[in-house]
Design a protein around this nucleic acid. Structure first.
Lengths: 227, 227
DNA sequence: TGAATAGTGTCTTTCAGACAATATGCC
DNA sequence: GGCATATTGTCTGAAAGACACTATTCA
C-alpha cells in the first residue's frame, strides 16, 4: 500500500490465532437457552461448544462473529455485541488461541436450525443445564449470562428477545425468565411504560377465553449502546 | 503435548497479529491525564501512541498489558482492567493487527517516568488536549474515558486514583476532575459516606491555616468488579 | 356466572439534588 | 477578629417496592 511502511515486518513475532465465539441466547418454551454446536474437529471433537471460528485476515471482529454464526447455524440478522476477550495461554490445548466473545440475542423466530445443512450438529440448551463444553466455554457462558442480566436493567436490550409486537405480559415473562425471579406485575408495567420505550399498537389479542391484552412495540428497534 | 491433538494444524490460517494497548489515566496538577509514548518504529514513527505492544505467545492478555506498561514506562503494580478489543482490518496500515485495550489507573505516586531508561519518550497529556495519535488510538482513548466516567458512578474504582489516606475534599476533586463538572459538597459527602466504602482513619490534616480535615481510607482496596 | 388473564392506584421508603449556615484552626 | 476550609441538615421530587382489587372476554 504505502511502500515506506513496508520496511517494518511484524511477522517476526510469533502470532497467536484469533477466534470469535458467539453466545446466542433466546427464549424457548419459557426457558432461556443458549445455542451450542457439536465440534467436528480436534481438540474436543464431539463436544458441545460455542459457535465460532477463526477470524479471517480481511474481516472485522464483528463481521467474523456474524459470519461464523451464519455458517455454523444459519442464523443471521440478529443483535450482536462484543463481550470480552479471553486469552489465557492454556485455554486451547493445541496452541495459543485468543478468542473474542460476542453476545447475540434473538426472538425465537422463523429461522430454524433444521433449515441449515449442519442442523443436526446444533442445539439449544437451557442455561440451567448446559452440558460440558469444549475449552473454557463454560466460563465464557457464565460471563455472558451475567452481562445479559445486568444490561436488562439499564438498557432496552430486551427488544431483541421479543417479536415486533407483544403484550406487556409477554415482555414481563422475558424479564422473569432471564433474571430467574418473579416480578410484581404492577411495578413492572409502571416502570416499563414510564421508560417511554414502548408504544401501544392499538390492536389486541384475539380469541382468548379471557380479557384481551393490548399489543405494544418498541419505539426504536435499535439497542441503546451503553456499558 | 498430546499427540492426538497435533493432527489438526491451525497454522493453515492466516493469522492476525495481536497487541495490547494501555490507557493509563492519572491526575496531575488537577487535570486528568493520559500516558502516551513516542513511537520509535514505523508506522507512525515519531507520533504519540498508547503504550503497548505484541502479545507474546506464552503470556495472558493481562500479563502482556502489565509487561508492556512496565517496559515502556516503568510503571507497575497498578490497577488494570480489560476494556474492549478493536479489530478493524484497516486500523494498522501495515498488516492486520487486533488490539486488546486496557484501562489502568494510578494515583500520582513515587514512580516517575524519569527513573526509566526511555523516559524522554513518555509523557502525560491532559485528556482535554491530547495530541494526534498513531492508529485509531484517539477513538480508543475516547472509549476508555467514557468507561472511566461511567464506572466512577457505580463502582469504587476511584480508590485507584487516591493515596491510601485522603480527605473527602481530595476525593471529591477526583470526581470533579474526571467528570469535568462541579459537585455539591454536601450531597457528595452524604452519598460517599452512605456507600459504606470509607472509614475515617482518626487522624486529621495538620498545619493548615484553617480547620483540619479528617482523613479517610477505603475499607477494601480491591476494585469491585462490575460491568 | 365462572374461569382466566388484563389492567390499574396508593402508600412507604429510598435516593438524588437544590440549597446556606456553623465549626475549627491559624495568623 | 479575620481568613480559609471543614462539616453539617432540610426540603422537595423521582423512582422503587410492597401490596389487592376491578375489568373484560369466552365458554
Amino acid at each position: 500500500m504505502n511502500t515506506k511502511l513496508e520496511q517494518y515486518d511484524p511477522s517476526i513475532y510469533d502470532r497467536p490465532s484469533v477466534t470469535v465465539d458467539v453466545l446466542l441466547f433466546t427464549i424457548i418454551d419459557r426457558e432461556l437457552k443458549i445455542l451450542l454446536v457439536r465440534r467436528k474437529e480436534e481438540p474436543f471433537m464431539g463436544s458441545w461448544a460455542l459457535p465460532g471460528g477463526f477470524v479471517r485476515i480481511n474481516e472485522s471482529l464483528d463481521e467474523a462473529a456474524k459470519r461464523e454464526l451464519q455458517e455454523e447455524t444459519g442464523v443471521k440478522d440478529i443483535y450482536l455485541e462484543q463481550l470480552y476477550t479471553f486469552g489465557n495461554p492454556k485455554r486451547d490445548p493445541r496452541t495459543r488461541v485468543i478468542t473474542v466473545s460476542y453476545l447475540a440475542l434473538s426472538a425465537e423466530k422463523q429461522w430454524l436450525l433444521e433449515s441449515h445443512g449442519d442442523a443436526s450438529e446444533a442445539a439449544f440448551f437451557s442455561v440451567k443445564e448446559t452440558p460440558r463444553t469444549a475449552f473454557d466455554h463454560e466460563s465464557i457462558i457464565k460471563y455472558g449470562l451475567d452481562r445479559l442480566r445486568n444490561k436488562l436493567g439499564y438498557t432496552n436490550i430486551s427488544l431483541s428477545l421479543v417479536p415486533e409486537s407483544f403484550t406487556l405480559t409477554d415482555l414481563q415473562k422475558v424479564y422473569e425468565i432471564i433474571l430467574d425471579e418473579t416480578i410484581d406485575k404492577r411495578n413492572f408495567r409502571k416502570k416499563i411504560l414510564a421508560s417511554g420505550l414502548l408504544l401501544p399498537t392499538g390492536s389486541k389479542t384475539d380469541g382468548t377465553a379471557h380479557r384481551p391484552a393490548m399489543f405494544y412495540r418498541f419505539k426504536n428497534r435499535e439497542v441503546i449502546i451503553t456499558d
